[in-house]
Design a protein around this nucleic acid. Sequence first.
DNA 1: TTTGCATGCAAAG
DNA 2: TTTGCCTGCAAAC
Length: 332
Amino acid sequence: MPEGHSVHRIARQFALHFVGKRAAVSSPQGRFAAGAERIDGLRMLSAKAVGKQMFLEFEHDRWLRVHLGLYGAWDFSGDFTADATTASASGRMGQTNQHGTVVGEHEDSLASIGAPRRTRLRMSEQEKASEEVADFPPEPIGAVRVRLLTGDTCADLRGPTACEVLTPDEVQVALNKLGPDPLVDDVGEAEERFVATVSKKQTAIGLLLMDQSVVSGIGNVYRAEILFRARLDPHTPGKLIPEELLRELWRDWAQLLKIGVSTGQMMTREGLTADEYAAALANRADRHWVYHREGLPCRVCGTNIVMELASARKLYWCPSCQAPLASYHQGG
DNA sequence: TTTGCATGCAAAG
DNA sequence: TTTGCCTGCAAAC
């Protein structure tokens, strides 16, 4: 479900509420009972996100690796500040400049405002906060694979595709499989790695962007949007893409990820008026250039957006704006 | 009220 | 290559 930005935000919640504390760890659902026992009562030392995976470090060289997959989610509950942490819910997102254009607000929407209140916060691709009157800790909702509980905060994980306790060596193996993440790796090195990898491959860029060993954190939405923003045909083989365009592609991803982490939303459009920006926040359909817009006119040229299946995932693009390679060689 | 699909991966076959 | 995950949402009934 979540692409990279969500996982970074979740890791930040752990950094805020769990790191440095001991957590009682259990598996209300039962499927992770053995793993939970191995980290139960240990102090959490760090929380980090790499791409779509999260790694929680505990004492005694034990790590919890979590991947949310298609519909996994974390529910945090406890005495949070009721800032809702989502920019849309707090109504603080987007500022209008003197030209009436939203310049975007990238301030930390996880920042605390107001007095702490008992709150429940669901973190998946979307985030939803709700005031909660229930007792603490709350009754588990649904099939809770793992629960981490401190004196005042509870985190419940449901529906993950991966949840396992690892040794440091095993963590390293997992990390080695992952391509660069703009928020984790040295900025320059990460770009070089990305460019070097893509430049060697005959594979279509539309597939390479979804390959977590090439670049980590991009999912189906960001894939489509990044390609449109670069006006790049998704079928272009990696090795045929001019280096400078690859660098622009990487920097655009880094920028979109940063926006996603600070706002909690995959907002991929720019240059919107205040009204357009408000509409985009209200309707997910208005946040994107091409994603989920099959058959609708391209926002730039009016050509109908096309959807095709690529490795069983839906790929959306504008066949006119994202013309084949030859046409931009000719300057078109 | 029911059905089908979804931002994704890993395990099974 | 197909299935499981087993949730949330929106469209269809």
